[in-house]
């Protein structure tokens, strides 16, 4: 069990099924305040499904408790309003809009609730991603893969989330960019954002995370502090391999 003093997110026996096929069964995980928790596992293990269910994009059975309040069935708009944010695997940017507009829309729910600090938050995001500032008027659809990922993360940060969920942030990116992304993940934790990170790049994810879960065919197969799991022979055999030390470099 991930024993933490202030859990931000606690999910208990979460189940999701597509018709008769159960994609996720009885998954229970905890993310503590200021923690990076990673969920690793092979393709099709149900990682994305789990994030979608927590966010309320998919229907689910079980209990999701966020920030101390239980949501029987999470609803996307409510979860965003309460400070949860998902950066999906597909990024889902607004391609025909400028970087600036994409960012401003990230703060839509905050604006609706009466907050008017978008300009300051945007400066903070630009500080984290100077590349985005240089291209602020460029259309999001014209960006490179790495810049898209930065924009997706920046857009989520505009909502000032308490919990940021990242779905495969390194997918399809060049090694140097992956390294940059993981450096930003670590930097975000320093700023007090709790992070739930779903990754196939297990080595880099375990390096940066505090606690880790291994998801296999819809079930939590293993869990433990990230550095312990990184030394576990089963994890090494299945996810890390023996010779691939260069991968760990990505998160340093």
């Amino acid at each position: 069990m991930n024993e933490v003093k202030n859990p931000v997110l606690q999910i208990d026996k979460l189940c999701v099924s597509y018709g008769k096929v159960e994609a996720l069964s009885n998954a229970s995980i905890t993310v503590g305040e200021g923690q990076i928790v990673t969920v690793i596992g092979p393709n099709g293990a149900g990682k994305t499904t789990m994030l979608s269910a927590i966010m309320g994009v998919l229907g689910s059975a079980g209990r999701v408790s966020f920030d101390g309040t239980i949501e029987a069935v999470p609803e996307v708009e409510r979860m965003v309003a309460r400070g949860m944010n998902l950066v999906p695997e597909k990024r889902e940017l607004f391609g025909e809009m400028s970087i600036e507009d994409n960012l401003v829309l990230g703060a839509f729910q905050r604006y609706r609730m009466g907050h008017r600090d978008q300009a300051r938050t945007m400066d903070e995001v630009f500080e984290l991603f100077p590349r985005l500032k240089e291209r602020r008027t460029q259309l999001a659809g014209t960006l490179s893969g790495g810049e898209r990922q930065m924009l997706a993360v920046g857009r989520a940060l505009m909502a000032k989330p308490r919990l940021l969920m990242l779905d495969e942030p390194s997918l399809g990116l060049a090694p140097l960019i992956v390294r940059e992304i993981f450096r930003i993940v670590a930097e975000l934790r320093r700023r007090g954002v709790s992070i739930l990170l779903v990754e196939q790049n297990a080595r880099a994810a375990l390096q940066v995370a505090d606690y880790a879960y291994v998801l296999e065919t819809g079930q939590i197969a293993m869990q433990g502090p990230a550095h312990t799991l990184a030394d576990d022979p089963r994890v090494i055999e299945a996810y890390l391999g023996l010779g691939g030390k260069h991968q760990a470099m990505l998160s340093t």
Binding site: V57, V80, L86, P88, K90, F94, M97, V104, Q109, A159
Partner: peptide, 23 residues
């Protein structure tokens, strides 16, 4: 206006807009 942009965003990418809390 932000509400106008939110409508355009919904037209461009419904899922993305939803994740921003634009129902």
């Amino acid at each position: 206006t932000l509400y106008g942009k939110a409508l355009r965003a919904t037209a461009i990418n419904r899922n993305g807009a939803r994740l921003m809390g634009i129902s």
